[in-house]
Amino acid sequence: MFGIRTEAADAGASLGLIVLNAGMLPNVGPFRLHPELSLALGDTNVCVLRLDQSGKGESPMRADLSPADAVLLDYDEAFAHLAAHGVRETVVMGLCSGAVDALRIAAVRKNVSGLVLLDGYVERTSRWRAVHLRKRLRAGLARARRFLAMRPPEAQHERSAEQRAGEGNDDAILADSRDWKLLDLRASYLDVLERDVKILSIFSGSFYPYNYAGQLQEFLSAGPMSAGLREVFFDDADHTYTVVTHRRQLIALIRGWLKEVFDV
């Protein structure tokens, strides 16, 4: 197993942040999001471990295990490493497939106290369909107006393959599906919330299954249990936080949440 640990400001820190891979990208994450986060948390009492899960980045594959079992064993080894440095509880962070891994880990490992989920699992609600339809109608009207105005093609901002990639339809990340049963994920959310695990769930503006603030709360219908869930719709940002300003805002959001909830 390979990971890079960034020491907390206080050597005796009891909270560890374990950052999982985003899809098949190495532990640095998209556009070095993860080292930037580690640097930003340098003055807090959080010990950060950027992990390469088995088969990704610098870590060898665990050929003898199912992907789901490998995720748990990876986490256990990461936690054991942090525990040797004084960590007693963890927050697990992941983007997209990493967020799904993080949720599953928290569902079965009681030493997880918090989750940071970036474009994590959510299902489409009836309101999602209404918002989606409204957006499509608006886009259709805009296309019709451009056509009627006979604007030249270059002004119509046709979406190239590059643009579509920038909007977050990132095959490499989305294709990294594990053998989790997705239908159980709502139950996993509810389980961890019931155990008082704190969740920061941030959705970007280009994550297709999510299109309005509060969609996760509505999907979970968790009632009073959802007090531990903070849901943020970061509409300006794309799936991989391509823009430096958006990454900084994201990091500030995570840092603020960790300080507020875990008093670090």
């Binding site: 391509t242 823009v243 300003t245």
Partner: peptide
Amino acid sequence: ACRDNLPIRLRDAVRSNEFMGHE
């Protein structure tokens, strides 16, 4: 050119000293 191909909402947010997502 790669920056110019980003969707408008992202391209407008990219500053002149950003290259392929790195400051």
